[in-house]
Design a protein around this nucleic acid. Structure first.
Lengths: 346, 346
DNA sequence: TGTCAACACGAAAACGTTTTCGCTGATTAT
DNA sequence: ATAATCAGCGAAAACGTTTTCGTGTTGACA
């Protein structure tokens, strides 16, 4: 087991100074052709690579990005990570991930662990609990210590930083308008409680679309699901709620759901109730994932372009990190959504 | 913007030496009660936290685990990451991820980037290209430099290290036996080319089950899909292959697929051909994911317990890292699979 | 022969810690 | 009164780099 070799060891072996070795490896003109070749050959032979940690300490930057997301077993977030990793690697950065598990405490702890020198900046999406408690001091502190943050998807206006979002309300409006213009007269929405910012915005888009069509919203067609209860196991209760919705409102002929899973489950319920999709009732979901693609019928969805969001977030962060001038100018990038039409709509 | 404070700054402010500050903060008995309180108060006030990078350099360990997986937008791998992250964090470690994208070169580069001091050890699953080329020199080098590796799922016997796997052939055998014992007479398998180790093993399990039932395998019931072609876009060709399979062999009444997607697609094809599931034909897939759960009918699958694999891998690695004695003894942990019975089987 | 520039290299500081060792002044024991 | 102990603190090394500055040797030139 040969341990990693260092400059010092090379220097000792070749009977020169550490500085000489360092310079020779970096092709400094200070060093004679002779010694340079000698050093480089030796270094290659022993497969020398500079120690990243030492470099980080010296340069006071780690070339590493910290990513904090609420959950990784989730198509959207893993796509974002892939995007981040893609451009980070291309630009010579590593990616270190922390999962908040939708918990405020874990979010704070994770940020503290990483903020002490391990990384140069954060890319994150806020946990539900944090959004609910509206306690953002950890973000403020991090930023005030000079560590840049880029937020994506779940953001909060109160914090000043770069942001990458989609136009949730616009995307939803388009989706609902698609339903309305293909003949739906009674479109229901399955959404979350309002504290989840995206849920609120998507509901707004639904209302906007109705207004565009001069229709007035019926409160009974708006189903606000308690998101806490839909964690894996409580799906039956969700099914029951949706079934009730359908039974109470026989005339529903279109459904817009603020995520993929709600839509898939709603389709299942509808099918069990004997409705034909898309003839009797049409469905559109938000956030394109594997489920939408492979469901039967395949689900029309609003694609959020998660990977693109990740790429953009990484670019914003790295641009910021490598910017010379220190003037603060935060930008908010809006990624366009796209309606992916499949077989759950006409 | 107040930059992070260091020992040196505290020392200067309080007019003591750096050593005194360090000792005071670590509650050394060398320091008088007086100065200790003074220093600790000051440190708390300015929210002092030791710089991780400096600590890493000094201790020659980073308390960080490098994870390299072929793909992150994949239910199984993201579950593994969650498992790794869970125990890593619990034991004070960070997780840094690299994606090989199933490419040999990216795998090598990623490992080199991380191996130069950034991490203490690797957890990885080998990329398909690497398996195909059978070039494992980067693993050997890493290990010979004293950096431990834990492999999971896609492993290779040639490399000596800790491993976490499932018993692919046993899990498959159980699945196929379930089909056979519930009445199937002609069970087909949809698998991959043999260089993917898990594909090969799962095929073996299929054969074992047949033998157990004194049935001889029919080559025409074994469909080996070229995995390269199934990347997102070439799904239609897969559908056609499966359709051909069904048309050639009208008597197929059971299908075992080596992954979730193949099974879902096969179900779709079967349904389009007018077969009833599970009455006419039964299906079982491998690797439990969202698709299986929410498909109609829901798919019976072999659950790999990805999160548990991740947890175990992290434990093995950290145990190794924190072990005092240097004796090498590599273990291979086999995680039990579990047949999750749903509606695609009787 | 003496001066100067060019060349090739080494010493040392710096990044932020921890830790070993040595030093000083005071208290205790002889 | 002298020696020995001890409490409390600081200096310095070490981790592995990069970089600035200094220094010695060589050759050319006046």
């Amino acid at each position: 087991m040969k341990k990693k070799i260092t400059l010092k060891q090379i220097a000792r072996e070749l009977d020169v100074s550490i500085s000489t070795v360092s310079k020779a490896l970096r092709d400094s003109i200070e060093i004679s052709e002779d010694t340079r070749q000698k050093v480089q050959a030796f270094a290659k032979l022993y497969n020398y690579r500079p120690n990243n940690i030492a470099l980080s300490l010296k340069n006071r930057k780690t070339k590493t990005i910290g990513v904090i997301i609420p959950e990784i077993v989730h198509h959207f977030f893993s796509k974002v990570i892939r995007g981040i990793e893609l451009v980070a690697n291309k630009r010579g950065y590593n990616v270190i991930v922390g999962l908040s598990n939708e918990s405020f405490d874990k979010e704070v702890i994770n940020m503290q662990m990483l903020a002490n020198g391990s990384i140069d900046g954060f890319i994150l999406s806020i946990s539900k609990e944090t959004l609910q408690q509206q306690d953002y001091h950890h973000f403020k502190e991090t930023i005030s210590q000079g560590m840049p943050i880029v937020m994506f998807d779940r953001i909060v206006n109160e914090i000043h930083c770069d942001k990458v979002i989609i136009d949730d309300s616009k995307g939803s409006k388009n989706a609902v308008m698609k339903l309305l213009s293909s003949g739906c007269k009674h479109v229901a929405i399955i959404t979350t409680k309002d504290y989840v910012s995206v849920g609120k915005l998507r509901t707004q888009g639904y209302l906007d679309a109705l207004e565009e069509f001069k229709m007035s919203p019926e409160t009974d067609l708006i189903l606000k699901v308690d998101d806490e209860l839909v964690s894996e196991d409580h799906l039956e209760s969700l099914e029951r709620e949706i079934e009730d919705l359908f039974k109470r409102n026989k005339k529903i002929d279109g459904v817009f759901a603020v995520n993929e899973l709600y839509a898939i489950i709603a389709m299942k319920v509808a099918r069990n109730l004997g409705m034909k999709i898309p003839e009797d009732i049409q469905f559109i979901g938000f956030t394109d994932g594997v489920l939408s693609k492979h469901a039967t019928p395949s689900l029309t969805t609003v694609n959020q372009h998660g990977q693109q969001m990740g790429e953009k977030a990484a670019e914003l962060l790295i641009d910021n990190l490598e910017r010379e001038d220190e003037e603060e100018h935060y930008t908010t990038v809006v990624i366009e959504t796209e309606l992916v039409e499949r077989n759950s709509t006409k």
